[in-house]
Design a protein around this nucleic acid. Sequence first.
DNA 1: ATGCAGGAGTGGTCAGACCACTTGCGTGTA
DNA 2: TACACGCAAGTGGTCTGACCACTCCTGCAT
Lengths: 217, 217
Amino acid sequence: MKSQKSHSKMYLEIVSELRNLIQEENIKTGGKLPSERVLAERMQVGRSTIREALRSLELLGLIETRRGEGTFLADFQQNQFVDVLSGFILQQPTSIHDVRKTREIHEVAAIQAICRQPALQQQPVWNSFLMKIEQNMRIKRIHLVREMIVATGNRLSLKIWMLLTQYSQVPYSEEMTIDEQGIVKDFLTALVAGDEKQALHNYFSWTERVEGERGEE
Amino acid sequence: MKSQKSHSKMYLEIVSELRNLIQEENIKTGGKLPSERVLAERMQVGRSTIREALRSLELLGLIETRRGEGTFLADFQQNQFVDVLSGFILQQPTSIHDVRKTREIHEVAAIQAICRQPALQQQPVWNSFLMKIEQNMRIKRIHLVREMIVATGNRLSLKIWMLLTQYSQVPYSEEMTIDEQGIVKDFLTALVAGDEKQALHNYFSWTERVEGERGEE
DNA sequence: ATGCAGGAGTGGTCAGACCACTTGCGTGTA
DNA sequence: TACACGCAAGTGGTCTGACCACTCCTGCAT
């Protein structure tokens, strides 16, 4: 585990480890996680690394930390559903394929929603993305997709999507080729025009290019 | 600033400070932020606190860190996502409307998946539902929809859908009218035939009838 | 039995130290 | 002069140990 420092970020590895731990120890929603110091020792990493992992989980609402008490799997107070779902995603061993497919479900739904609502097509954000492409600036898939889901106004969908994104760790920072720029440009053009069929076609082309067949990981 | 130890989390304060700094220094998209050590000194906090703030911004995709080079600003400016962020972090309660819409997303995705895969259309379960209608037996919407999502083979989608269903408590156990039977029958027929457009149309008719007003799109 | 004080445990934060990596400058060589 | 190499500085990534503030619980004194 410590040998993997070369590739992915350590704190993301820890997130994975935490998921296993929660499952193995069968920690229920609202249950208490081991303390940061115990986690650090058990996973053979420094406490600060543990904290960075916990911080990201906290931001997503997956856990709740209470000073002097401990760290808990998301509680039921408000926002019940997401907390339950969070615990669910953290606890269940889920196949990478299902995660990807489910993420895709939400992304496709956002595209369809935008293509069917002119008000969403007219938002300035799409032109801003188009302009960036004209200027040869890199666009990250995750940023564009996120804006699309934000545009739909469905915060729950956004939250689920973000959870899944973090889970599957799609390769972010690939360089964008000329071909890819063309695809994204066509995609955005179709999106703004409300051409659902064309938009989806371009979306899948882009997805395939970015994520490729590297589903094994 | 250091006096704000009282309630809000420090690293969230830092996030706020960072936004000010970016604005004041007029750092453009893709531009470089001061190093962690400089930020720590300038904001009078420890480097680890800075890192926790940066880590959460990185998770949200607002910055990008490259080892040995520095921390760079992603697109912060006119992104709508930033506006949503506050509510996101504050764990606003999820609206019933969002729950319903999200559930619909998964249901529609299942219908589309089935209509595009003949293998799924040929499963005997659909005919068994049709036969029950012929025999005037009640079909609960929840049962049929669940079978559809099961058929897609995406267990994660199924889990999410079940949570949403449990949460939103749609009135499922209504008696089925003659009209409704017709709609469901048409729906299943279209589904088995792979007629996506017709299936969705019937699905929405059914949903509207069972749940009341249908989402405008 | 009740109330209080203190210890143990926990998250929050800081400081300093390495390591791994990138960059760029300068030096030495062909 | 031109090129290649190597070293130093700067940066993010991580670890360690320390202290603080807070919560909880236990045991002692009343």
